[in-house]
Design a binder for these strands. Structure first.
Length: 196
DNA sequence: AGGCTCATGACTC
DNA sequence: GAGTCATGAGCCT
């Protein structure tokens, strides 16, 4: 039984996030679905692999780990639960504009290029920003500015891999896979100024 | 300030 | 291969 994933939800003041775990770590973090997810992202997910998803039934509105095990459909390995606690705590720190500590391992699936970009993003600390061009420089491909934007958009674990801290050269917003409202909000929580 | 154009790397179909 | 970008710089008006 390989390629098994566990999905668990995290209730926050900003809505219910969904965390997806592979055997290696946190593989995906999804923003609260305000409605339909973008069709593009959805099809990318579908194409991804044939793994089957094991959804745990989590219903308790205000706890990130459901205590009500009677509704649980499957056994969640303890290491996943441990990661999930770290994710939930880290997420809440991040949403408050603080640096998370003790994040779970991240299992970022992507091309070599994308992983280099995501790695560079993780070095941008809260309150700091870089431009797409500066990220391109940081990974040694100064001309790959647009490709950096593409890699940001493909980031499976937003917030922990802080693509919201990447602004356009003029300090304007650029884009954001989770919607520009989220980007604005996340930047504001870290006290980051940007141009309209 | 806004608009247009082009170079550009990576990715998708 | 053409088309698509979460860019950037340059050059207009």
């Amino acid at each position: 039984m390989k390629n098994q994933f566990f999905q668990l939800s995290i209730a926050t003041r900003d809505g219910q996030f969904i965390a997806r775990y592979s055997a290696k770590g946190l593989a995906e973090l999804r923003f609260p679905s305000v409605g339909r997810a973008s069709p593009r992202a959805a099809s990318r997910r579908r194409r991804g692999n044939e793994s089957h998803f094991l959804n745990s039934e989590l219903r308790t509105p205000n706890s990130e780990l459901n205590g009500d095990s009677s509704r649980r459909l499957l056994q969640i390995p303890t290491h996943i639960l441990r990661w999930h606690r770290a994710t939930a705590a880290g997420l809440k720190s991040s949403l408050a504009g603080r640096k998370p500590k003790n994040l779970p391992p991240l299992d970022l699936a992507g091309t070599e290029f994308q992983k280099r970009v995501w790695n560079a993003l993780r070095k941008i600390s809260p309150g700091q920003t870089k431009s797409y061009g500066e990220v391109a420089q940081a990974i040694g491909k100064p001309k790959a500015v647009r490709a950096v934007g593409g890699a940001c958009g493909a980031n499976p674990v937003p917030i922990f891999v802080p693509c919201h801290r990447v602004l356009a050269a003029n300090k304007k917003l650029g884009g954001f896979s989770g919607g520009l409202d989220w980007k604005r909000s996340l930047l504001a929580r870290e006290g980051i100024e940007f141009n309209v």
